[in-house]
Each structure stands twice: as C-alpha cells, then as structure tokens.
Simulated assay, not measured.
Amino acid sequence: MQKWEYVTVPLLVHATKQILDNWGEDGWELVQVVPGPNTDQLVAYMKRAKA
C-alpha cells in the first residue's frame, strides 16, 4: 500500500510558478490551492510518496 506525506505551502500571487517549481523539483505534487488569510496569498496542499 502506498503511503504519502503532505505539506501546506504559502504561495505569493506574484511568485506562484517559481514556488511550485521549487517544490516540484523535490518530488512534491500539487493537490489543491485554496485562498490564504489575505488577498495576496494562496495556500497549496502538496503530497509525495514516502520512501
């Protein structure tokens, strides 16, 4: 059975691609993006397989 680990990542609207690319390089897969605590921020939920 596959096991996963999860992380939440704050995203700045003006740097979303760069932030997601950096996490993707480390093997994290984007699951969902939701609004953050203010209008300039989003929160990404990400997962990757546990070793």
Rank of each mutant, 00 (worst) to 15 (best):
V31K: 05
Y45W: 04
G36C: 09
E5I: 00
Y45E: 08
Q32N: 13
L12D: 07
M1D: 10
K47L: 02
A15F: 05
V9M: 06
G24L: 13
K17R: 15
D21Q: 11
M1V: 03
M46F: 06
V34T: 14
R48F: 11
E29N: 12
V33I: 14
K50R: 13
V43N: 03
L30A: 08
G27F: 04
A51W: 00
V43M: 13
V31Y: 06
K47C: 03
Q18W: 03
V43C: 07
M46L: 14
V9S: 05
K17C: 03
V43S: 02
G36I: 10
E29T: 10
L12N: 06
V13M: 09
D40H: 10
G27D: 03
A15D: 08
L11F: 01
K50L: 06
K50Q: 08
P10K: 10
A15R: 08
A49H: 09
L30W: 00
L20R: 02
L11C: 08
G27S: 03
P37V: 15
Y6V: 07
W23A: 07
K47N: 04
W4K: 14
N22L: 15
A44Q: 12
L20Y: 00
I19N: 05
M1S: 10
L20C: 03
Q18H: 12
T16F: 01
A51V: 07
Q41A: 08
L42D: 08
A49W: 04
E5W: 01
T8C: 15
E29H: 06
L12E: 09
G24Y: 02
Q18I: 04
M46R: 05
A44E: 09
A51Q: 01
V9H: 03
V33C: 02
H14G: 07
G24S: 08
P35F: 13
